[in-house]
């Protein structure tokens, strides 16, 4: 039982990161921190994908002499795409935060809401 729990440590990391990321997105009132949380959340998924490509005893998937077992490269390739998407999302999110800061003079959610309520 402990072996099973410890042996799957990478998945535990995924779960911890995912929950931490989501918690930050929900609980933080700072727009920048929310983006950070979103990043952590996405990172957990990257690790999930990378973990699933792992083959026991396999090495990096390079075509060479003497390498009989290698990890499944497809999830790695997929997650490269997802990382690119994540970077784009972060960039866009931060750009929006910059614009919001210009417009509201704040990056705190509650202050922005106050400003919106008083003068739409």
């Amino acid at each position: 039982m402990p072996a099973e729990i410890l042996g799957l440590y990478n998945y535990w990391i995924v779960i911890v990161l995912m929950m931490a990321g989501l918690y930050v997105v929900i609980a933080s009132h700072n727009l920048v921190k929310k983006i950070v949380g979103l990043n952590i959340f996405q990172t957990s998924v990257f690790i999930l994908y990378i973990s699933m490509g792992e083959v026991e005893g396999g090495t990096a998937p390079i075509l060479a002499e003497g390498i009989p077992r290698y990890a499944n490269p497809l999830p790695h390739v997929l997650i490269l795409t997802a990382i690119v998407v994540g970077v784009a999302t972060t960039a866009l999110g931060l750009a929006l935060v910059v614009r919001i800061h210009q417009a509201y003079n704040s990056v705190e959610e509650d202050e922005i809401e106050k400003a919106e309520d008083s003068q739409p």
């Binding site: 998924v45 999302t89 929006l96 509201y104 739409p120």
Partner: peptide, 27 residues
């Protein structure tokens, strides 16, 4: 209006969570 910015930001956060969930499901 400037509220467009906050609306877009909110959509970005929610949309990204949704898309990532879909990504997890596919994985």
């Amino acid at each position: 209006e400037r509220r467009a910015l906050t609306a877009a930001y909110r959509y970005l956060v929610m949309g990204t969570i949704g898309a990532t969930f879909i990504l997890i499901g596919i994985g």
